[in-house]
């Protein structure tokens, strides 16, 4: 009889241990992939956009201070990408089109950042920009030529870029929103254009109400 109890107790301990393990391992059953965990963590921490020097499609160079007091809607791309990036940029364009014109450039800037500075020089970006009808002002395409700065940004914003050795990269795609103070505000699913637009509009309109 006592032995049976032992088995029961042992099973109980094991199950409790298992639940604790799985609970901590998934941040309380919310994040089963590292990607979700990363997004959750970033949104909680709201890291500051690091100091980098952009070079955009019009060969202008500037730092993040250029966009002071504006929301920045960001995607990370490279122009030789075959599948994911064009989709990402198309969806970004759909968000862009839904934002009323009076906000554009004033309260919000769209920015596509290339993590492939070697190939994506201003000319390439300029051509790429036209493919998505970006105007180069309120929706800019830029890269960061200084590799250490670029790496710091990718690290800070948790963008993972793995070269596959065949001239392509594997990378995670999402919409990033940086607030007026230069902190990461939110990371949004890029396949869900409407929710992203909704989220941006809420933030923009909140300011108006002030």
């Amino acid at each position: 009889m006592i032995k049976k109890q032992h088995t029961a107790i042992a099973c109980f301990i094991v199950i409790v241990f298992g639940l604790v393990l799985l609970y901590t391992g998934t941040d309380g059953f919310t994040a089963y992939t590292a990607e979700t965990a990363r997004v959750n963590q970033l949104v909680n921490e709201q890291p500051e956009f690091p100091d980098v020097t952009f070079t955009d499609s019009q060969e202008r160079t500037y730092s993040i201070a250029e966009f002071e007091d504006k929301y920045i809607f960001i995607t990370f791309i490279y122009t030789s990408c075959g599948d994911e990036c064009p989709l990402l940029e198309m969806n970004m364009g759909m968000v862009y089109d839904q934002i009323p014109e009076n906000y554009l450039g004033e309260d919000i800037i769209f920015l596509s950042i290339s993590f492939d500075p070697e190939r994506d020089d201003p000319e390439t970006l300029d051509v790429y920009k036209d493919m998505f009808h970006a105007d180069g002002e309120t929706w800019r395409m830029a890269t960061i030529t200084e590799q250490s700065e670029l790496d710091a940004l990718l690290e800070e914003f948790g963008v993972i870029v793995i070269p596959d050795g065949k001239g392509k990269f594997a990378h995670n795609s999402a919409f990033y929103l940086v607030d007026r103070q230069g902190h990461l505000k939110d990371i949004m699913d890029f396949t869900d254009v409407d929710s992203a637009t909704q989220r941006v509009m809420t933030l923009l309109e909140a300011k108006e109400g002030e």
């Binding site: 094991v14 199950i15 298992g18 799985l22 391992g25 590292a34 965990a37």
Partner: peptide, 14 residues
């Protein structure tokens, strides 16, 4: 049971 739990945990992509 312990074996299964450990295995399940390591099957998580996370």
């Amino acid at each position: 049971l312990l074996f299964s739990i450990i295995m399940i945990y390591w099957m998580l992509p996370r």
